Computed example of a mutant assay.
Amino acid sequence: MSENKRFEVTDHPISIEDVIQKVKRRECGAITTFIGTVREFTHGKRTLRLEYQAYKDMAEKMLAQIDKEVQEKWPDTRSAITHQTGTLEISDAAVVIAVSSPHRKSAYEANEYIIERIKEIVPIWKKEHWDDGSAWIGDQLENTPYPEGKPPKGASND
């Protein structure tokens, strides 16, 4: 299996089972998954849908970089990460992370580390569409480049 296949940004719906299969190994006693889904209410606002954009090539490189960090901290783990771009509806999976390990503790810890690092360094942008308007949400660091070199109209770092 190609390393790039474990770290993917796609405009297609994510198969949770496919992501899990990428980390299954005979020596693993635990597989943890994190599935980030589109929720209907955020901070009191009703969400209608989300829109994700990404700098795909760089995002996939950064996902692989996060895996290298994980390997330094939890060498017995294997991870796979898939993030969907485009328009997502309520309950759709936006990101799926799977981590396998011989023991559950390192799988849990690595999974949590991965989602936090994605929010910090991966060039993926989210636009929330609410029933009273919409805005780009900046989970990434302020110096992360926006698509096409400029912030999308209405970009915010809130």
Rank of each mutant, 00 (worst) to 15 (best):
T42I: 14
T77V: 15
E17H: 08
I124R: 01
R49L: 13
I31K: 03
D139N: 10
A94Y: 04
I124F: 05
V23R: 01
E8F: 03
M1R: 15
T77M: 08
F34M: 10
R46V: 14
V19W: 00
S101C: 15
A80N: 03
T85Q: 05
V95Y: 01
R78Q: 10
D139H: 12
A93F: 11
I97W: 02
R26A: 11
N143F: 06
K127A: 06
E128R: 14
G154Y: 04
M62L: 14
L88M: 14
Q84W: 01
E128S: 15
E109Y: 04
K153M: 11
S15W: 10
A59L: 11
W130N: 09
G44Q: 02
D76I: 07
R25W: 03
E116M: 06
V38C: 12
T47H: 05
T42P: 00
M58R: 13
R78L: 14
V70M: 09
Y108T: 12
K73M: 10
R117G: 03
Y108L: 15
Q71G: 06
S79I: 05
Q140H: 04
K68S: 13
I124H: 02
E8Y: 03
V19N: 00
A107E: 10
E8H: 10
I14R: 02
N143R: 07
H83F: 04
A94P: 01
A64E: 08
T37C: 15
R6F: 01
I124Y: 02
Q140R: 13
W136V: 05
P151A: 12
E148S: 15
P145A: 15
S2W: 07
N143E: 12
L48S: 05
S91T: 15
Y55V: 09
N4A: 15
G154N: 09
Y113H: 13
I115C: 07
K119C: 05
A94K: 08
A54P: 00
Q71P: 04
A54Y: 00
T47F: 04
D18Y: 03
K56W: 04
E69C: 08
K150F: 04
S101Y: 07
D92S: 10
H43V: 09
A54W: 03
S156Y: 03
V38L: 12
S100I: 05
E128G: 10
T37K: 15
W130P: 02
N111M: 13
P147H: 11
V99G: 04
K56C: 08
V99R: 02
F7G: 00
I97Y: 01
S106M: 08
D139E: 11
T87V: 15
Q71D: 06
S2G: 09
F7M: 05
I137L: 12
I90Q: 06
T77H: 05
Y146Q: 09
W136D: 03
P147M: 12
I118A: 03
